[in-house]
Amino acid sequence: MTEVKNLEELFQAKIDAEQKIEPKDWMPDAYRKNLIRQISQHAHSEVVGMLPEGNWITRAPSLKRKAILLAKVQDEAGHGLYLYSAVETMGTSREQTIEDLLSGKAKYSSIFNYPTLSWADIGAIGWLVDGAAIMNQVMLCRTSYGPYARAMVRICKEESFHQRQGYEIMAVLAKGSPEQKEMAQDALNRWWWPSLMMFGPTDANSPHSAQSMKWKIKRQSNDELRQTFIDRTVQQAEVIGLSIPDPDLKWNEASQHYDWGAIDWTEFNNVVAGNGPCNKERLAARNKAHNDGTWVREAALAYAAKKAKRKAA
């Protein structure tokens, strides 16, 4: 018992000294579990996140936008892959992790359960959803678990164009025809609140937050990140002439931040519980891809085995 306690103290001392934890290091069981949960949720979010945007690849209104969107959705597959690899360093295979997604046991970011209804949604997702995600991801580049931090560094480098391409789409629409501007405003109206929900429950209601901060898995609280996001995004909306759909939004001279209205947490909880507009479709699409791919994966293995056998003979 004392020995475990010592190990824990040593572990916490490493964290406090800003040293990274590596796969073979001793770590508390709860740290491992917490990380596996967080990284796999993150990985699932990348992969499920391909669906609402992939939805518009065949309909992108110019070839340039089509190429950008293809490259962006492809990046997300890559990010999912890096993150599943980070989970594998903790001893959980990708297959197991994906199994939990497909069975509905694992969670992913609820934002991807909202539908993409117009081309402007591709702009809104890049600008708001990726914008919110990047805030989290930049913080996670300094997370305490080495493989996770390294995956995040790579992801952040690649993500840098994602938010910009989305904002650019919105900017072009906003200064286009009245119909285009209306499309952009409608997308902002629909994606604004779900984007704020992406930062998770308020600090007071976030069950894992305190421990995650102590272990330096998380480095900034949900509310801090959310506030920074709002402050930045409001200014960006002003520049392109779109309005944030929040009547309570007001600059607060004293705090030097925006005050803003209340998030509808009932909606959030409903989507998390599986009742979002597209929860069923997203899971069905992932399951179909996985099941349709079974014979492909088997064929490749069967051929590899035959080839290895022939080589040995």
Partner: peptide, 24 residues
């Protein structure tokens, strides 16, 4: 070392690495 991935055989691993880790 840049990361890892899954593949059925070495040739596929090299090609997947090309697609996954050298997109830029």
């Amino acid at each position: 070392h840049v990361g890892s991935l899954h593949a059925a055989d070495p040739q596929m691993a090299i090609e997947n690495a090309r697609d996954v880790y050298t997109r830029r």
